[in-house]
Structure formats: C-alpha cells, structure tokens
Design a protein around this nucleic acid. Structure first.
Lengths: 212, 212, 212, 212
DNA sequence: TATGAATGAGACTTCATTCAT
DNA sequence: TATGAATGAAGTCTCATTCAT
C-alpha cells in the first residue's frame, strides 16, 4: 500500500510532461488567454511557481505543446505511411484516413490541433512552428503517397495540394463538429462511418477508372 | 466644403456596423482577448466610450459579428442553392463550391469564420450561435442538395453529414493554409484551381457511374 | 465654501506633478523597490491605474523625478550664481553654500538627491541623467566661480574639481547626518551654523592671503 | 593533485566571510533588492540553501556586512590616529585624509559604504548600526584630533562637527563621482591629487595663521 | 553540512467598464 | 450622443525562504 502523497508521479523528471498535459487540458478548455497559470499548476498538482521552474513563460508552454504534438501524431502518421507505402497506395490512404479519424475522435488528442487552430492567429511563432513541423511533414507524406499511387497506376494525376485538403479537411471539420460545435442532443457521426464515407468518395474520385 | 473629420460616415445609424467592421478586423488580427476596446474604437474612428453606446460588452460584439456573418454569407449560399436546385444538383454543387472558394479567398470575409474558429472554444454561446445560425443552415442546404441529386439520379446514396464534411473541409483547410499558416515564400494554390480540383474529385466520388 | 470632494486638486493638468510628489515621498520613505505603486497612488489620492495614465512605468517616474530636481534646484542655483557673480566671487560662494545648506535642510527638498544616491547604482540611466543634468551643471557653476575668483584676485589657483568636492561634500554629509543617520536624541548642527563654518574654512583655505 | 572543485577555500569556517564577500559584490552591483540570493550563492560558489545555514535572512547579511565594515576600516583609521596623534595633529589629519582617499579609491572597499548609503533609508536598523559603529567612532576620532590640534596651538577653534563634514564630505563626493556617477569618457581626478588638494584647503582653513 | 526542487505571497502592469462633463 | 479620465479586478512572473533528501 504505497500511500501516494501527491496525485501525480514522484518522478521529478516527468514534471515537464505532466505540466504540459495540464496546460493542454486547461488551454483546450479555457483558451490560451483564459487559462490562468495557477489553474494549470493546480491541474498538474504543483504550485504556481513550480511551473516556472520548467517553462519560461506561458507562451513557451504553447510552443512546447506544438512540438510534442508534432513528435507524437505526425511521427506516428509518418511511420504508418512508411510501413505500408510499398504495398498499395490505395490501402495506405485508407489506413491513413482511418488513423486520422480515430486519433481526432479522441478529444485528448484533438485538443492540441484545436488549440493551434485557436491561437495560431495570435502567435505567429506558433503558426510558423505548426507550419514547419506538422503541415510541411503532412504535405510530404501526401506527396509521396500521390507519386506512389500514380506510379502504381492506381491514382489518376492529382495535385497533392488538393489531396491534402481533401484528406485533412473533412477530418478537421468532423473533429470540430464533434467537439467545439457539438450538439449534445444529436448523436453525431460515428468515427468509422465517417472514415469509410470519406475514403470511399475520395478514393472513388481519385482512382483511375476502368472505362468511362 | 467637405472637411470630413472622420474617414467614415456621418450617418449615426451606420455606427454599429462600422464598429463591427473595426471589431472584426481587430479581432482577426489580435484575437479576441488581444484586441483592446480602445483599439477597436480607434479603428472605427470613435472614442472608447462611444463603443459602449452601441454594445453592452466586448463579448456582445463577438455575438453580433457571428449574426452578421450568418446573415450575409449563409444567406447568400441559401439563395444560390434555392435558385439553381431545381435545374441540376451537380451544377449546383459545383456553383456552391466555387462560391465558397471565392468567398473564403477574400481575407475580409474569411476573417469572421476564422474568428469563430479561434474563440468558439472559449465562448460556448458563440459556438451555439454558430452551430444554429451557420452550421445547421449549411446542413439543411446540403441535405436538400443530396435529396435532389438522388432524386435526379445523379448522386448515389450519400450521407449528407459526409458530403457536408467533404465540401466544407477542403475549403476550410485551404483558407487556413492561405491565411493563418501562409508561407510567404511559397505561392499557394489559386482559388479556382482548388475549386475545380475539389469539385472534380467530390463529384466523381459522389456521382452515379455509368457502368462501374 | 467649495467642499472639496478629493484631498487634491481638481485641475487634472496638475496630476503628473501631484503623482511625482507622492512618488518622491514614497520612494524617500520606502526606497524605490519598497514603494508599491498602490502606495504612491494612495498618497496622490488617485487609483493605481491612474498612475499609468501619466507614467509608463515605475522607473519612468524615477527619471521624471530627477528631471524635476534638476529643473528646480539646479536652476535656482544657476540663477543665484549668475546674478551675483560679477560683483564678488567670495560673496557668491558664501551665498551658494548658504542656499545649499538651506535647501538641503528641508527634508522635502533633500529627498530627491537622497533618492538618487540610493538608486543610481541600480539604474545606470538614472545615474547618467543625474550626472548630465545635475552634476555637470554644478561643475560648470563651480568652474565659472573659480575663474571669476582668480580673475578678481580673491582666490588662489584652485582646481574646480577640488572646490566642487569641498562645497558639495560637507553639505551632502550634513544632509545625510540630519536625515538618514539622524540620532533623535542628539540635537545636530543648525543649518546656518554649518553654512558659516564650512564657508569660513573653505574661503580661508581658498583665498589669497595678505602676507602668509 | 588537489583538484579544487571550487575556486575558494575548503575550510568551512571561512564560509560566512566568503558569502559576505559575494553578498557585498552582488549588492554593490545590483542593489540590495536587486540581488537574488541565488546570485549571491553562485558568486560564493555554494548552493542557495547553504546561504541559509549561515545567515537567517537577506537582511541579516546586510547587517553583518556593516559590522565587518566597521571592524575593518574604522578600526584601521582608529589605529592610525592613535599611533600618530601625540606627535602632530596637522600631520595626523593629513595622514587620515590620505588613508581615506586611498581606501575609498578602491572600489572593493568603497562598495560597503556605498551600499549603506543606498539602503540605510530603507532599513533603519542598518542606519542605526552604521551610525553607532561607524559614524560615532569617526566623530570621536575627529573630536580627539580637534582637541589635540587646539592644545598644540596648531588649529584654531573649530567645531568637530564641522571638521567631520569637511573631511568626510569631499572624500564621499569624490568616491561617488568616481564610481556611481563616473563618466567613462572623462578621466576624473587622481586620488592623491585630491587628497593633497583637500588637505591643503582644509588645513589652510583650519590652521592658526601667523599674522592675518 | 549541503542541495535544489518546491512553495506562495506579492508586485507590476493591463484593460474592460463606468461616469462626470 | 460623445468623450476620455478614472477605476480596480485580475493575471503573469519573481524570488525569499523552506525542507525532504
């Protein structure tokens, strides 16, 4: 019976990550401007001052959050594409969309992109960070996927810029409708239904057709 | 004998709208929290106190802004659909996408949805307003369009929820990439190229096919 | 019987000066770091926020204070010297010392130089301001006085730098002993006794002697 | 092959003095309020916590500093006067002024009085300590010197209070001009030139004259 | 003795809102 | 209607001090 004196870990090296978790949840709920440092500290189970032992300022937490987002989600997406690409571009695209739909259906995961969406306008550095660390990498992924699909004879000539918007857009809107604009009364679309629906249309629209 | 002391109208009944214009530009640039009332007043060419003659609070300006957005853009979209629907669902969808792409390519127009995106999380009332006044009406439009397309034998069975995401998503992402995350160095996609690209894929994906 | 609603003036244009008076008294009593803005505001009879309508920051009040000191005391000393110099250098020096002794005996006047003494180390800009606006002008005064005395055959060759220290030093120490290090129990030296004592020795030491 | 991990002693009994050295240098540079305990600890080569093993609080370091100042400089001055007084009051005064000028020209020595000057206002206890341990003892010295000079027929009747101000004042002003208000561009007065200049005038002014 | 992570009171500064004019 | 001086609540960040190790 270990008797944990604090609700959080006793490993001090985990502090920065714990504080970032708290910051993400506070930012997501209250917005960057609306989240008080004291609130973040309380959610992390530490004192106000302790936050400043690990982060220079409120804004630096935001940056750290974006970096962590890139490391985690984009990294996973890259790995997924890299693993499947050789086999079949169509199947890879389908997997990617399913992965995205699943991830973004988890409010804890979608909190970070929502945060960036909300604050990028205010903080050009955040926008630049996201552009370079997330969007650019996503663009590379899609470009590679297009090339592969065209080489394999599966996709017709399609602009990667368009495919990026076609893949990311519906997922993003879905995420927003499921969180920020959620209507508690109505059920909303199940994540896998959406993923399949999107994939069907996009692949139908993108694939080379037998005749026609 | 002109000598206009202010750049704008002397018609006092235009004041609220002028202040809203100023507020939108300030909010878009600085964020809701970052825009000082004094800044908005200065942009509108009035004094800080005058703002409070027309609006109860900063937040009430945000609400008024969303209402105006709904009145203008959604109203126009509804008119467009209503005018064309009987004729041809495919062509209507294409027109709608072009209309959206054109509108959202104008930063002055896209400022409002971007603002909502940024602040909806913080202000549930704003989110609710947007959901009821913009999203719900857009959903109705799309639903009608689906029904009509299916009736006309042009569309295959498609979930309106999916079509909404497929139409709004790419446009939204495009707008974000063109504004918030714009990379000054790179050119970006031309609005009409995008509109056609999206329409081609979506319609290809959505249309009933001759054979298969 | 006007019934003054506030303890201070009703002339808003006097505010900056009133706030500076309050700041000087608070700084003198509590030190720059120890004086809270709220305390200064209270002494000026205004709110905390009002202070920031007139001054950018706490430090800018310190600078304004030094400028005012220069304008007032150094200006008066310059006028005094200018008015008397032609007549008699010895008498001018005596008047100057008496003027200084009288001024510095007034705690309200000496508060400003004491403040500079206390804070100049911390704030190089303050030190520079005092050096340029007060010390340099005092040095010019003394130099002129030396020249004139030597021309008139009253003073022997004396370095103005030395005379500056001989005049300012005893006055400064006296002021410190009368304020900061005052021993309430002991009486201390009367200002005019001091002025005459210093003048006698300095002039004796400085004057050309009949024989020797 | 000792490999001293810290630049200073390993003798723990020297710690308090080392910390005081660090505190003096930090206070002199940053002011009492501006010097963080962590900064002092770093300058002393110890940890923040270690400082509190030797001193109760920041303020107690200030007090200890003043006591050390009295022990060292005033003690030396007392010894100097005691050693020379019997012989010749004039020469003793000259030696005393030279000693003071030399000591105060050393920024490491003058740091302590400068610190007291800066902080005495804020900390009445410091002012009292300085008054009792430094000023009072200096006053005794000067008084003795006056009496001796008058007995020897060298000095005319002079108020010790005045002589104290005449001796300490110019030195103090000189020190301030050479440190706090130093103008890097201009050369400033050499210490021995000053000492002689002051001594000449003061002694000329104080000595009994042959005729006149 | 020694460390340095943690605490939390406290201060400057900002800004939405009010109100006398 | 219109102004802008004034208010004061609120928030970020600092740092002296403590304490578990």
């Amino acid at each position: 019976m270990p008797a944990s004196p604090r609700k959080t870990s006793r490993r001090p090296e985990a502090r920065p990550d714990e504080i970032l978790d708290a910051a993400l949840s506070a930012f997501a709920e209250l917005g960057f401007a609306g989240a008080r440092i004291e609130e973040i500290a309380a959610r992390a189970g530490v004192s106000k001052g302790a936050v400043y032992l690990y982060f220079d300022s409120k804004e630096s937490m935001l940056k750290a959050l974006v970096r962590r987002l890139a490391d985690r989600v984009v990294g996973a997406a890259e790995a997924l594409v890299k693993a499947n690409l050789e086999a079949d571009a169509e199947q890879t695209l389908r997997s990617l969309l399913t992965f995205l739909a699943t991830q973004l259906s988890n409010p804890a995961v979608s909190a970070a992109p929502r945060l960036v969406l909300a604050e990028a306008q205010r903080f050009p550095q955040i926008a630049a960070l996201y552009r370079d660390e997330v969007i650019a990498r996503a663009m590379q992924l899609i470009t590679k996927l297009c090339q592969r699909g065209i080489e394999q004879g599966t996709f017709r000539e399609i602009e990667p810029q368009v495919l990026l918007r076609l893949c990311a857009g519906p997922m993003l809107v879905h995420m927003l409708l499921a969180t920020v604009f959620a209507d508690r009364n109505k059920p909303g679309l199940a994540p896998d239904v959406l993923a399949r629906g999107i994939a069907d249309v996009v692949l139908n629209g993108v694939k080379v057709r037998a005749a026609s």
